[in-house]
Design a protein around this nucleic acid. Structure first.
Lengths: 139, 139
DNA sequence: ACAACGAGTTGTACTCTACAACCATCTGGC
DNA sequence: GCCAGATGGTTGTAGAGTACAACTCGTTGT
């Protein structure tokens, strides 16, 4: 097997490995905001004018799943569904101030835990790792 | 915020982003072998003498969850639980020939899909990305 | 104006998961 | 040797996340 396909296989395996552990770690570290909810909320925060259907497509989830997750987030006051005057079928999503606070706390914890694992990484490696991940995800 | 903590935050966000999509993508691409089952089987293949408790610890899962997943894998003939003569409490796990075939097929699909996303990456970047992921996961 | 489409919600069922209770086996101190 | 506590695993039960199907309501195109 070529060096290249070995690298691809390693990337595949290690990413899956991470994904598999992330759920459990996240459930333990911030109970009360599931990984799904956290991710959806983060996405809405970062992307203006997101609608439920966009989330479903992006995260490969059924629209019913997204609908219920958003309903829960809205119930808890972390997110608003704003009627779009131009299109009465859909509603545009927006994180509330309360939601933003929750996200800040969760993010701080998550980033803190991650920073611990990365303490002995040189700055240059961190920057490159970050850019690789962005590049991979945006493909 | 420093460049360094920006990088850490990006890494955190992008890894979670990946994890969140992995489940759905995997469920669609290889139905019949869940992401959990696939990961456990891969782990057993790569690590001799793995026991159920090791998997539970490694993947941050309850031992009951692992027990059921393994029971299913064993039922389907993909994995064996071999009695350990030295310790009658535990059983050592081993992938069967059938299990190996399943893994090969699943891996080939997964790696193929991933290779498509990575076609325009230079070899050096792939190698570095792979090594970063290994380094991160082994921490 | 009506049919097709798009966005979202709700009913239902299944899987993954945790927690608790349990059984069997091993280990260390006495 | 023997018992208490630890370790490995299974089973009962319940809850969260998810998909699929059927539905409503609004929009678009012919």
């Amino acid at each position: 097997m070529s060096k290249r396909s070995q690298a691809v296989e390693t990337i595949q395996r290690e990413l899956i490995e991470f994904a598999r552990r992330a759920r459990g770690v996240s459930a333990r570290s911030h109970p009360g905001l599931s990984l799904v909810a956290y991710t959806l909320l983060t996405h809405v925060e970062r992307h203006e004018q997101t609608r439920a259907a966009d989330l479903a497509e992006h995260y490969v989830l059924d629209k019913s799943t997204v609908s219920r997750q958003l309903a829960e987030l809205a119930d808890r006051g972390l997110l608003e569904r704003v009627a779009d005057p131009r299109n009465h079928r859909s509603r545009v999503l927006r994180v509330t101030a309360k939601g933003r606070r929750h996200l800040d706390v969760a993010r701080e914890q998550a980033v803190g835990a991650m920073a611990d694992r990365l303490t002995d990484w040189p700055d240059a490696d961190l920057a490159r790792f970050a850019s690789y991940l962005e590049r991979y995800n945006s493909a």
